[in-house]
Design a protein around this nucleic acid. Structure first.
Lengths: 207, 207
DNA sequence: TGTACATCAGTGAACGCGCGTTCACTGATGTAC
DNA sequence: TGTACATCAGTGAACGCGCGTTCACTGATGTAC
């Protein structure tokens, strides 16, 4: 094993991604520029092109990493919980925690801009894998007789909506509201998790 | 009453806002440019500066209008429903409908970018007014003995999260998921509304 | 171990571009008398 | 009603800028013999 040196350090990709994340946290994904990323990484502005083909490549890499992290967080939460309903709730809490803990990833993952086909093909499978965790948990719930009143897919998406909404509001900031409206994220997280449980237990009729 | 003519038509502000909305729908808010807006409005690229001070001014105007429309939609939904719980649910459905019906407004209203102080002062009161509708409905619910198990503010925010999440996923597109995952928004909207009802009826214990 | 060579991962100059904004201008509209 | 003038709402040229990307280059690293 060789230790990479500063020049040709072999670590540049990671450093670039880190720099990008920190820029996104500070200024949002809209005004991100390759030159600023390179500056932030302490490297000439052409260097990133050796590792990521272009700007979209950097963002796609981040989004893919983000979904991988999310999936890992969800799986780990699911494994630690006992019983289907607890797993469903734990999933929801983990989702919100992920978003709050990694706001830059979260923004990149769900930014509405059109992605190139190449970017999409790279990110989409990772996203799907994360989504699959939720699907599995819901399946397990149904086998245990929970949430039978709602179509499974609707249950998955409603659960997802609930936690995604809280996550969005927490991450994107209550640009809308007076300060302090969201000042107790942990309590909100708990309430939202309870909501998920209620959703399951009640099995609201899907007409 | 004078009819404005094409030159000095007096309608340019409205036309510019319309053009901006249509650009946002097509390409997102990220790559929006003043010159493109002017082009889209069929006017020289300096013309918009006479009506909105700068680029941020155009976006602030849209966001303010958006919150005004949202408030109107919520109030109208509330007025048409009977009973506190029905009003709460109607509010949620109206929120989702608003987002789906006016995706460009929705994106501008909740875009995470830092706003200037001036922009904030212009948009914030409108946002607060819309938020207030929810607060009032929740108050009414509590007076009717609904949702007593949850702190009122938590109830407002959880309800908001639930509908905001669905709205975000519908508007920002399931860039994450395979096509078709969200192909029945109406059914989802119904399930989400039911979730709100469940939230209230159950009054999930906060802790 | 030493040497020759290929490849890798950086650098810095250069390109062309669209952008936001300003400015002097001009034609249309509104107002005073 | 007519005329003089102020104001309003556009135009088009011009500015300076940072950007994404390309390119020839160079120094460091890895490999064959």
């Amino acid at each position: 094993m060789k230790r990479p040196t500063a020049y040709h350090h072999g670590d540049l990709p990671r450093i670039i991604l880190r720099a990008t994340l920190s820029l996104i946290e500070q200024e949002g994904v809209a005004h991100l520029s390759m030159r600023e990323i390179a500056r932030n990484a302490g490297v000439s502005h052409a260097a990133p092109y050796h590792h990521f083909g272009d700007k979209a490549g950097v963002i796609a890499a981040l989004a893919a990493d983000g979904f991988e992290l999310l999936e890992a967080a969800l799986r780990s939460a699911v494994e630690r919980a006992e019983g289907p309903q607890a797993r469903f709730e734990a999933c929801g809490r983990a989702y919100v925690r992920f978003a709050v803990g990694h706001p830059a990833y979260f923004r990149v993952m769900f930014r509405p801009e059109r992605a190139s086909a190449e970017e999409h093909s790279r990110v989409s499978p990772r996203a799907h894998a994360a989504y699959q965790v939720l699907v599995e948990v819901v399946s397990e719930c149904r086998r245990a007789g929970l949430g039978l009143g709602v179509a499974p897919r609707a249950l998955v998406l409603t659960g997802w909506s609930t936690v995604h909404g809280l996550a969005s509001l927490l991450v994107n900031g209550p640009s809308a509201l007076g300060a302090g409206a969201l000042d107790n994220p942990e309590r909100l997280e708990r309430v939202v998790a309870k909501t998920l449980g209620t959703l399951l237990a009640q099995g609201a009729r899907d007409r």
